[in-house]
Every structure is written in C-alpha cells, then in structure tokens.
C-alpha cells in the first residue's frame, strides 16, 4: 500500500528482533520482543490487514510479553555469557543453506500486489471459482456484515474457529496440569521434610 512506511516499519522490526535475541538480560529481551510484535502489528495494518493487526497488538504484543515476564520471574533473569554450543560448523551450514534456499525461492514468487497473481486470480488455476473472490462477492449478501474477515471467520469457516477454541482449551488444560502437579509434589516434599524435622 505505502511502501515507504512499510520499509521503515520492517527495518525497525528486524532491528528489534535482533536486539531481543542478542541482549544478555532476559527482561530486556522480553520488552524488545513486545516492541517487535507491536511493530509487526503496525505493519499488518499498513498492509491492509486491520483484524490481524488488532489481534497481534492484543495477543502477540500483550499476552506473549506477560507470559515471558512471568516465566522469567519464576526462573532465572539473566542468560549468562557462555561460549557458543558445540557443533558450530554444521549449525552454521544449516543456517546458510536455509537462507540461500529461501532467497532462491523468493525470486520465483509473483510480484506482491499484482491482482492477477495466482493467489487472487479468478477463475483459479484449476478453473474453479477462487474462494477469496467468492467470499468478497457474497459475504455482505450472506451475512449482512460489512467486515469480510469476520464473516469468513465466524460463518464460512466456523468449524475452523471451533477447532481453534479446542486447541486453546487443550493448551490451557495442559498448562494447568503441568503447573499443578509440581505444586502437589512440593507439598509432598514439605510434608516429608516436616516429618524429618520432628
């Protein structure tokens, strides 16, 4: 949409991401990761994805930051300066191979923003109606809601969203169970040490 604004936000985003993994204090790392998430939310809005920007600002920048800060306060606050791990050369080779493959792949992608790219073309490559065009043309008529993303999320792909809720429920239950068993064990150990002291 506005490529100057996009480039500025992306440069700051890359800088914040690099800062967040290279600093030694984990608290600084958490804060810069939040900054990175918020810059990403801004660039989503610049690219026209308002709903994704909202969600990233609330869930990505807010909740992730809170999770990391809770985890840091329950564990160690510093990541002490240690030598890099063993097997340096194969890891570096994997990183470089990954980057080279990605750059090679990106040259084959269609130009961004081209309305005739395969992703947006109607009819699609298989000769059928493009799903996205169908949603754009029929969403307002079918659900009387102007926001197409909401209509797809709640009406056309409602089962998808239901599955997402099940994943969140499962994740919450897993967190609860993991942290609960440790508390029980701590109480058992305390009782044991009480018995010893008596």
């Amino acid at each position: 949409m506005h490529w100057e604004l996009e480039i500025t936000l992306l440069i700051f985003g890359v800088a914040a991401a690099w800062l967040s993994i290279s600093t030694r204090s984990l608290l600084t790392s958490a804060v810069t990761l939040t900054v990175f998430s918020f810059l990403m939310a801004l660039s989503f809005v610049t690219m026209g994805a308002i709903d994704v920007g909202f969600t990233e600002a609330v869930v990505g920048a807010g909740v992730t930051g809170i999770f990391i800060i809770i985890a840091i306060f329950k564990t160690a606050r510093q990541s002490p300066e240690k030598p890099e791990p063993r097997l340096r050369a194969p890891r570096l080779a994997a990183l470089l191979l990954f980057g080279a493959l990605l750059i090679y792949g990106s040259t084959g992608l269609p130009d961004r923003g081209d309305a005739n790219a395969l992703l947006h073309r109607d009819p699609s490559a298989a000769g059928t109606v493009n799903a996205a065009s169908y949603y754009i043309q029929n969403a307002y008529e079918d659900a009387a809601t102007p926001n197409m993303v909401t209509v797809i999320l709640a009406d056309y792909r409602g089962y998808d969203t239901l599955g997402e809720e099940i994943v969140i429920l499962a994740a919450g239950l897993i967190c609860f169970l993991i942290l609960r068993t440790t508390r029980e064990r701590r109480e058992r150990e305390r009782r044991k040490s009480d018995r010893f002291n008596r």
Binding site: M148, E164, I178
Partner: peptide
C-alpha cells in the same frame, strides 16, 4: 480476506502453544 482469516487463527494458536512452552520451562 482469506489469508487474514487464516492468520487470525494462527496468532491465537501460536500464543496458546507458547504458554505451554513456558509452563514446561518453569
């Protein structure tokens, strides 16, 4: 609008799995 919808789901699921990762770390 289709990639936007899919990514809304991905962000929320990503944060849920991140929560599980931090519970394991603790």
């Amino acid at each position: 609008p289709l990639p936007h919808t899919l990514m809304l789901t991905a962000i929320v699921v990503g944060v849920a799995t991140l929560g599980v990762a931090f519970a394991l770390l603790i």
